[in-house]
């Protein structure tokens, strides 16, 4: 099916927007790295950049839609960017051959521990924070001496958690 002219135009427009935004991120990242090395900052430039961008977004200096598509691509295809460092592991082939089995089995056990431990803690904590919120709302309702309907605080944007 041949694409209509306007469809091609809008696709090109989107691509141009993406490229501009990604170049902005690259330029910004580079300047932040320069800044970090100039300040002898213990924090890496990328984390400084993250903080600056977040502040600019919160202060409405930069509107969200000006960085949206670039950020979505950079985050969505993050995996692509760390394939080269993974291939570089071939430099350490001999170590990995020798310790591969130990490494994988012990990492598997460790991952189970982290996953379960975190999930358990959060599960308990979440119920606690939810109760705390309900109590606060009840108190406020009593103060107003009116039968206030208690909003289900355990939902975020309407989806039950």
């Amino acid at each position: 099916m041949p694409l209509s002219f306007s469809a091609i135009q809008s696709k090109l427009g989107k691509l141009f927007l993406l490229l501009t935004q990604v170049s902005f991120f690259c330029l910004f990242a580079y300047s932040c790295q320069q800044l970090a090395s100039w300040l002898h900052s213990p924090l890496p430039g990328s984390v400084i950049g993250l903080a600056i961008l977040l502040l600019l977004l919160c202060g409405k200096v930069i509107p969200e839609k000006a960085v949206n598509s670039g950020a979505a691509w950079l985050i969505g295809d993050l995996l692509l960017f760390f394939i080269p460092p993974v291939v570089a592991v071939l430099k350490y082939e001999d170590i990995l051959e020798q310790y591969g089995v130990t490494l994988i089995s012990s990492m598997l056990a460790a991952s189970c521990l982290v996953l379960l431990g975190t999930a358990f803690t959060v599960d308990r904590l979440f119920n606690f924070e939810r109760r705390l919120k309900l109590q606060k709302q009840r108190k406020r309702a009593q103060l107003l001496r009116a039968p206030v309907k208690i909003a289900p605080t355990h939902t975020v944007s309407g989806v039950p958690l």
């Binding site: 919160c58 950020a71 950079l74 985050i75 692509l80 080269p84």
Partner: peptide, 18 residues
């Protein structure tokens, strides 16, 4: 490609804001 890891880190500001 690996050099794009730094801009990608900065891009994480957007979902935090959203």
């Amino acid at each position: 490609l690996a050099a794009l890891l730094a801009p990608a880190t900065i891009a994480f500001a957007v979902p935090i804001y959203r």
